[in-house]
Simulated assay, not measured.
Amino acid sequence: MSCPFCCEKIEKIIENELAFAIYDQYPVNEGHLLIIPKRHVSSYFETSNEERLAMNELLEDGRHVLEKTYAPQGYNIGINCGEAAGQTIFHVHVHLIPRFTNDIANPRGGVRGVIPEKRIY
């Protein structure tokens, strides 16, 4: 099975030497970005320090793109590591999800919502 992130025809929004960003094909909110290392690697924990720095740089650059284009009021940043955590594409990618006031009734708990009954505390 070929990796959808290793495809030459992928439309990159921004990139640097070691990573790039694309819009998520199944966005949680408008503007949902994925930050992806260029090297095919399955887990965040297998990335090099240089790749992590490159992804962090694109998180900042991506935030600037989203602020200009969508003006979100907040962000969720997350990585699914392993099948038990919900990873479905085994090429590590960081989700940068813009959040908007009232996009859900009660956003309290944010990323804790991966286990819905644990989100509100």
Rank of each mutant, 00 (worst) to 15 (best):
M1H: 09
M1C: 15
C3H: 14
C3A: 13
P4Q: 14
F5H: 14
C6Y: 14
C6L: 14
E8M: 12
K9L: 15
K9A: 15
I10G: 15
I10W: 11
E11S: 15
K12V: 12
K12N: 07
I13H: 10
I13C: 11
I14T: 10
I14Y: 07
E15C: 05
N16M: 04
N16E: 05
E17W: 05
E17F: 00
L18K: 07
L18M: 04
F20W: 05
F20V: 04
I22H: 03
I22D: 07
Y23C: 02
Y23L: 12
Y23F: 04
Q25A: 13
Q25C: 15
Y26P: 01
Y26I: 10
P27A: 14
V28I: 08
N29V: 08
N29D: 13
E30N: 09
G31P: 07
G31Q: 04
G31V: 05
G31A: 11
L33G: 09
L33T: 01
L34V: 10
L34R: 06
I35L: 07
I35V: 15
I36Q: 06
P37G: 10
K38M: 14
K38T: 01
K38F: 12
R39K: 15
R39T: 10
R39A: 11
H40D: 09
S43P: 04
S43F: 08
Y44L: 10
Y44A: 03
F45W: 12
F45Q: 03
T47V: 06
T47M: 08
N49K: 08
E50S: 10
E50V: 09
E51G: 04
E51W: 05
E51S: 07
A54D: 09
M55A: 01
M55F: 10
M55W: 12
E57N: 08
L58K: 01
L58C: 04
D61K: 06
G62P: 00
R63S: 02
R63H: 02
R63F: 03
V65E: 08
E67P: 02
G74S: 08
Y75P: 00
N76I: 00
N76M: 02
G78D: 02
I79S: 00
I79G: 00
C81W: 01
C81I: 05
C81P: 00
G82N: 03
E83V: 03
A85R: 02
A85Y: 01
A85I: 02
T88S: 14
T88D: 09
H95M: 04
R99G: 07
N102I: 05
D103G: 00
I104C: 10
I104T: 07
I104N: 12
A105P: 00
A105C: 05
N106D: 15
P107A: 06
G109R: 13
G109K: 06
G110Q: 08
G110H: 06
V111G: 11
R112G: 09
V114P: 06
V114H: 07
I115H: 11
E117P: 13
E117N: 15
K118Y: 13
K118W: 13
I120V: 08
I120Y: 14
Y121H: 11
Y121K: 06
Y121V: 12
Y121M: 15
